[in-house]
Design a protein around this nucleic acid. Structure first.
Length: 572
RNA sequence: UCGGGGAUGGUGUAAUUGGCAACACAACUGGUUCUGAUCCAGUCAUUGGGGGUUCAAGUCCUCCUCCCCGAACCA
């Protein structure tokens, strides 16, 4: 198994351990599996991977990696009604993007034949029987919490008769729903999972891999542990809700003639994040009801959405390994994820200047050439102050510029450092300018700002050492490229969607997308690759859309001290 | 109601297995800065509650409280 070499992940936190790693270490110490470690990531190909899956993927692969073991990707394709090759392809793609290469890609359906043989074995041993009752009846007879179940009238049918019926099920001679194969365990067991669980159901459906060869399909419980055993998995990690299934996992494996020590299951808490959801069902509703534009809409926590939004795979990996593994149900602040994204992007991103909401700034004393045209100068700015090796770029500067509306106030609030009549600020990498005048429309909204510049401050430094409180970004009006930007807000308005009313969709953020057109960009923006992420200085990180020219997705904003001050002012 | 699991700051995760509650995020102070970014310094919990054992308890015992999961021919 491999992982992109660029990211050390756990390496930055060596001594780190958790209950899963403790278990693995102890199994190695006692040679339970002869020192082997093998894990697997077992998604069902009926949906797209999301950030919650990323936690599981990182854990599964990291455990293998740290112990010289291996990790397979195994599709849990036991339900032909909901699964599809397209999902399987998407899952492979997402895992690869995340930075992991499985040691093998397998399917539960690869083992249908072996599973069936073992099912006949259980029938022969009197450990499984065909039940001809309806699903409703079986459910009813299962009993409830604290109440014992009732045994099926078919429970003690002779093995030979069961075998004949099972074969008839397999041959497609019996209609869907007419009967199921059940394990014969204990209808009184306090763990409902052991009250004669269903092993096979009849489905006359086409499976995306096995086609029409099977008329019966194994349930999750009858397929999962067996798949693990066949593949040589040692540590089968899954989420907490499968805790009660563990006894069944063990029971099935105990009945089978295995040559190696049986794998065992360990459960851990799945990932929850504030202001979003990792529920497959909820995500489906959000997409299907049109709250977002598709499974890769950057507002979603799906891996393809995060990728499109510009989240580096390494930041997701780092986040997943930093949050640890426990059995406590918890919910992480989404800010933590965002802080990993910012940390990564701050190091790696080129800086660009962009003006999202343009306001014209005219330098009234800017020189003109012989044709009476404003002269154009090229100012040199670092591509990334965090990394000198990224070099410099030349940006055209002239007498008419765009600045952001937010960087000018006719009537500045307290602690506002930016441009206002009479005040001097720095145009980043350009000159110090002083506002002399502002033209406004009828409603009093500024439409054009007039400034004078100080020719002695070329590059933005004042020879006399005078300080200005603010530096703002700008784009030369005649050279500006025009495009659009999608600003994303949280998917939900509440930290815990659904906590108020019981219905998560009640808390969906109706204003999660703010599409801004008419944005102005510095000319070098034209050289960006599809999907490349840059920092628009003083604004945030933005990913170039893969298809639309000059359209950007806001990955995450910069931390914003001014916004904080304003909020405090509102509060007091 | 029965079974399984869980509870450490605003959030999450640790604590050499009985020995000074640590780290990250958030928040708040302040400093640096040609990004109100980054960076740097500082502040912010005696561990769900009661009782017990012990020189010493987040850790052991005991009683209690609260939370999550489980009664698909889903996974």
């Amino acid at each position: 198994m491999t992982q992109s070499p660029s990211t050390p992940d756990h390496a930055n936190d060596p001594g780190r351990t958790d209950f899963v790693r403790d278990l693995v270490a102890s199994d190695i110490a006692t040679a339970r599996f002869a020192g082997r470690v093998q894990t697997r990531f077992p998604p069902e190909p009926n949906g797209f991977l999301h950030i919650g899956h990323a936690k599981a993927i990182v854990l599964d692969f990291a455990i293998a990696l740290e112990n010289n073991g291996s990790c397979f990707l195994r599709f849990d394709d036991t339900n032909p009604a909901t699964e599809d090759q397209a999902y399987a392809d998407a899952i492979c793609e997402d895992i690869e993007w995340l930075g992991f290469s499985p040691d093998g890609i397998t399917h539960a359906s690869d083992y249908f034949e072996q599973l069936y043989e073992w099912a006949e074995l259980l029938v022969t041993k009197g450990l499984a029987y065909v039940d001809e009752q309806s699903a409703d009846l079986i459910a009813e007879q299962r009993g409830g919490f604290g109440q014992p179940g009732v045994e099926s009238p078919f429970r003690n049918r002779a093995p030979d008769d069961n075998l004949r019926l099972l074969r008839a099920m397999k041959e497609g001679e019996l209609p869907e729903g007419s009967c199921v194969l059940r394990a014969k365990i204990d209808m009184q067991h306090e763990n409902m999972q052991l009250r004669d669980p269903v092993m096979y159901r009849i489905r006359h459906m086409t499976h995306f891999r096995t086609g029409d060869t099977w008329k019966i399909y194994p349930t999750y419980d009858w397929a999962h542990g067996q798949g693990d055993a066949i593949e040589g998995v040692t540590h089968s990690l899954c989420s907490l809700e499968f805790s009660d299934n563990r006894s069944l996992y063990d029971w099935f494996l105990e009945q089978l003639p295995l040559s190696a020590p049986a794998p065992y299951q360990t459960e851990f808490a799945r990932l929850n994040l504030t202001y979003t959801t990792t529920s497959k069902r909820q995500l489906r509703e959000i997409v299907e009801q049109g709250f977002v534009e598709g499974w890769d809409d950057p507002r979603l926590p799906t891996l393809r959405a995060l990728r499109r939004r510009g989240y580096p795979a390494s930041s997701i990996r780092d986040f997943c390994s930093s949050i640890g593994v426990a059995r406590t149900n918890s919910r992480h602040d989404i800010e933590l994820l965002e802080s990993f994204v910012r940390a990564d992007l701050n190091r790696s991103c080129l800086r660009k200047m962009a003006v999202l909401r343009p306001l014209k700034l005219v330098i009234t004393n800017w020189p003109t050439d012989a044709q009476n045209q404003p002269i154009v100068e090229y100012r040199s700015l670092p591509n990334n102050p965090e990394n000198e090796a990224d070099g410099q770029r030349e940006i055209p500067f002239s007498g008419e510029l765009w600045i952001d509306e937010e960087d000018f106030k006719l009537d500045p609030p307290p602690k506002y450092f930016r441009l206002t009549p009479g005040r001097e600020v720095r145009l980043r990498g350009g000159y110090l300018v002083t506002c002399t005048d502002a033209l406004c429309d009828e409603s009093g909204r500024p439409t054009e700002i007039h400034c004078t510049y100080d020719p002695a401050t070329a590059g933005g430094a004042a020879p006399d050492g005078r300080k200005v409180k603010a530096t703002i970004q700008w784009v030369s009006a005649v050279h500006a490229l025009e495009g659009s930007v999608a600003l994303y807000d949280r998917l939900f308005t509440e930290q815990v969607p659904g906590e108020r009313t019981g219905e998560p969709l009640d808390d969906i953020n109706q204003n999660s997308l703010d599409l801004i057109t008419g944005c102005k960009f510095e000319p070098s923006i034209a050289n960006l690759q599809a999907g490349e992420v840059v920092q628009f200085e003083r604004v945030g990180y933005f990913a170039a859309d893969a298809n639309r020219e000059l359209h950007f997705h806001r990955t995450v904003g910069l931390r914003d001290e001014w916004a904080r001050i304003q909020k405090q002012a509102e509060g007091s």
